[in-house]
Design a protein around this nucleic acid. Structure first.
Lengths: 217, 217
DNA sequence: CCTACCGATCGGTAGG
DNA sequence: CCTACCGATCGGTAGG
């Protein structure tokens, strides 16, 4: 990419353009995920990187391209983590516990992301990101549930269960659960384990007593 | 409120200030719920009401006060609906089915609302709305689950279940579920009934086969 | 990667 | 409830 002849010197901090680009991506990821696309200005991102705002446009064509790059980066990382979990041994319950423990740590505010995809982006970017979301998150989660269905651990749709893709979406919604609706922001491994047990317990056994009836199917 | 003497005439459309205020609230509710607080400008709201933008400030002190009024109105309406369902007869499963059928129709985009409460409002408004949310939505839902726990239809926390408030939060997360993650936007009563059965089935029975083990508690 | 600057739009105010 | 307007901030560009 860069010409070798002469060696391009960089006077300021010794950072290459690639390092600057990565610093912008890292900073923008944090800000966008915390506040959303619209609430974060290009000037805020630049200032947090120690740059002026027009400098951003040397690395990204416009604000939306930067945001798309941030989201695709996020989805790639999450995809790798989920595939790793799906490939490991263990039964459905154990894999789900690991998924629940893994996803909240991955700086992914799905709620925020979906709002922006649906409301702030150009249609072609919206489509592209939705496809990346399905490939990176829905597909690996659905493969875990498909295993459970195949092995007979989960009820098939004919027996009152749901298909693997539906199960993946339901799990993603439950993953939004934090104690007190996100108000208290408890943390620590004890809470993390408790939360995992609540979500996995609901997903697999539900809340009713075994003898309870009142459901069709 | 208005003085009687002489009779205040209104030349334009015969609408009283109260009617104008209600029209603003109705219009703002639709726009804010669809797009979010930040994405909707006071000029858009005014134009949709057939007013100029400064006219809004005759009825509301500022944009945030209008938004708070919109959210409190919404929560009041939802509260009435949920209390009605909670007070009716029927077991837990039937009440939950009615809740699931009722809530999506109530123009409440919880995701949007929570984002704005957490990120866009002054702390005192944020606190006030969170309390209204707990009183209007969590409390009636928790009372349904508390009934189920008391009657022995639901597992107590000691038996691997969850408390009533936690159950209310989990249900609210599941209510965000729409086919395909909100992409396809299916509708019709057949889909509504199917969705209710999926969510209530998951809440009460989970997805595992009855004989499946691998869970603690 | 900087300084300087553009037009557009924002929430809100003045004054009638 | 209007016209007229304010200062602030937005995303993005020119030119070096």
């Amino acid at each position: 990419m860069a010409r070798r002849t002469g060696g391009i010197r960089r006077e300021r901090a010794g950072e290459s353009p690639e390092e600057t680009r990565r610093a912008i991506l890292r900073t923008a990821q944090r800000l966008f995920m915390e506040q959303g696309y619209r609430a974060i200005s290009t000037r805020q991102i630049a200032a947090a990187c120690g740059l002026t705002q027009p400098a951003l446009y040397h690395h990204f064509a416009d604000k939306e391209e930067l945001y798309v790059a941030v989201l695709l980066d996020n989805l790639d990382e999450v995809h790798a983590g989920l595939e790793r979990i799906a490939a490991r041994g263990g039964d459905v319950a154990e894999k789900l516990r690991q998924v629940v423990g893994y996803l909240p740590g991955s700086r992914q505010d799905l709620t925020q992301m979906f709002h922006d995809i649906q409301h702030e982006l150009r249609p072609e970017d919206s489509r592209r990101l939705y496809e990346a979301f399905e490939a990176s998150m829905i597909a690996p989660l659905a493969s875990i549930f498909a295993d459970g269905l195949r092995l007979g651990a989960l009820r098939s749709p004919e027996r009152g269960g749901v298909d693997a893709v539906t199960a993946a979406y339901l799990l993603l919604h439950l993953l939004q659960y934090q104690a007190g609706g996100g108000k208290a922001e408890l943390s620590g491994s004890r809470w993390t384990a408790h939360r995992a047990e609540i979500i996995v317990g609901l997903m697999l056994r539900g809340l009713a007593e075994p003898g309870y009836v009142g459901l069709e199917g």
